[in-house]
């Protein structure tokens, strides 16, 4: 991790109010208040864990989890039921040979005349997360350790993880999910800040 990166994260962190149990994502846009002073007194580890748990509210939203399924088939909807029509990841996560994700999913969201499915989500890189990044059915602690594990995170350094979470436009789709879908909590910017601060505070993972 570079010094510049750490510096950037540290400067962003002051924008963020993090108290365990308080929803930080919703208040990111407000300026830092007095609680920042008390934060410093929290042991860094505990604070880092709290930051991750806050970020996990995004990670565990159906918008993210649906494409990080337990099996090699995505789920869909708020209830994360099996994707209809049923679809397999195929070897590259783009669907089986002859039926790519983009058979149905275009480069952007498309509104439909449907009632339960008011739009078909879309993105130029629409695909299923690799099996190593399966999140469904796991605890935040397990997901946290998985995200940090180079063998299970696509070989990403923490810096790259931050970059991915904060900037990747497919991740960003979670906040622009199309008609009929709840966006992930907060914003990608706030999520990026949280992840950055989590890393800056030692990228600690919850127990369990």
């Amino acid at each position: 991790m570079t010094r510049d990166f750490l510096h950037a994260v540290a400067s962003l962190a002051v924008l963020c109010t993090v108290v365990p149990g308080v929803i930080a994502l919703n208040v990111v846009s407000s300026t830092a208040d007095q609680t920042a002073a008390t934060d410093v007194q929290q042991p860094a580890h505990e604070r880092s864990v709290a930051l991750f748990l806050d970020a996990a509210r995004v990670i565990e939203s159906p918008r993210c989890m649906n494409c990080h399924p337990a099996t090699r088939s995505p789920t869909q909807g708020e209830a994360m039921r099996l994707h209809t029509p049923p679809i397999d990841a195929g070897s590259e996560g783009h669907g089986p040979l002859g039926l790519n994700c983009n058979t149905c999913h275009g480069s952007e969201n498309v509104s439909t005349i449907g009632i339960d499915i008011a739009s078909i989500p879309g993105h130029p890189h629409w695909m299923l997360a690799p099996a190593s990044m399966s999140w469904q059915g796991k605890t935040p602690g397990e997901i946290c350790r998985q995200i940090k594990d180079l063998t299970r995170n696509g070989g990403r350094t923490l810096e790259q993880i931050h970059e991915h979470m904060a900037k990747d436009s497919l991740v960003g789709w979670a906040w622009n999910p199309g008609d009929g879908r709840e966006p992930a909590p907060g914003s990608q910017e706030a999520f990026g800040i949280l992840v950055g601060e989590w890393i800056a505070t030692g990228a600690a993972c919850p127990e369990g």
């Binding site: 209809t84 029509p85 049923p86 449907g114 009632i115 339960d116 499915i117």
Partner: peptide
């Protein structure tokens, strides 16, 4: 129900 997602038929 409204479509084949909520009124599933055999595939």
């Amino acid at each position: 129900q409204s479509n084949f997602d909520t009124y599933p038929v055999l595939r």
